[in-house]
């Protein structure tokens, strides 16, 4: 079981679509790809689009928190959308929703960020 990371730049927003399973084994790929894309694309904000993320554990929380800090240091924002029930529960348990606004889909996530910027 593996993980695919799909990246799309839209204005100053980086959309990150994670497909598959995010655990300790696949967390490094997410870290490196996102780190590089944020720096290279000079992205201000990130949308984590998780419709096809079928599994995630606390290693996923770690890598997401890491990117949140990276963005925050640049005054950027991170939002999540399309979260399935299993992943939702993990976000809720860890208190991540206190710092990451959640949206139903990419469109409403984008709208929220354009109001911000």
């Amino acid at each position: 079981m593996s993980l695919q990371v799909e990246l799309e730049h839209y204005r100053d927003v980086l959309i990150v679509r994670l497909k598959g399973e995010l655990d300790h084994h696949t967390a490094d790929i997410v870290r490196f790809k996102m780190e590089e894309a944020i720096l290279r694309g000079n992205s201000a904000h990130v949308i984590l689009s998780l419709k096809d993320l079928l599994f995630m554990d606390s290693s996923g929380l770690g890598v997401i928190l890491g990117r949140y800090k990276q963005l925050k240091a640049r005054d950027g924002k991170m939002v999540v959308c399309d979260v399935n029930p299993g992943v939702y529960r993990l976000f809720e348990l860890s208190g991540l929703f206190k710092i990451l606004p959640i949206h139903e889909n990419e469109r409403s996530a984008l709208t929220s960020l354009e109001v911000v910027s």
């Binding site: 967390a27 870290r31 554990d57 606390s58 290693s59 929380l61 770690g62 890598v63 928190l65 890491g66 993990l90 348990l93 860890s94």
Partner: peptide, 18 residues
Amino acid sequence: PLFTSKPELERSGMGFTI
């Protein structure tokens, strides 16, 4: 919750809590 002995590895410290 949130304690980790390896913060440099971006561990969330949520394993036992989960």
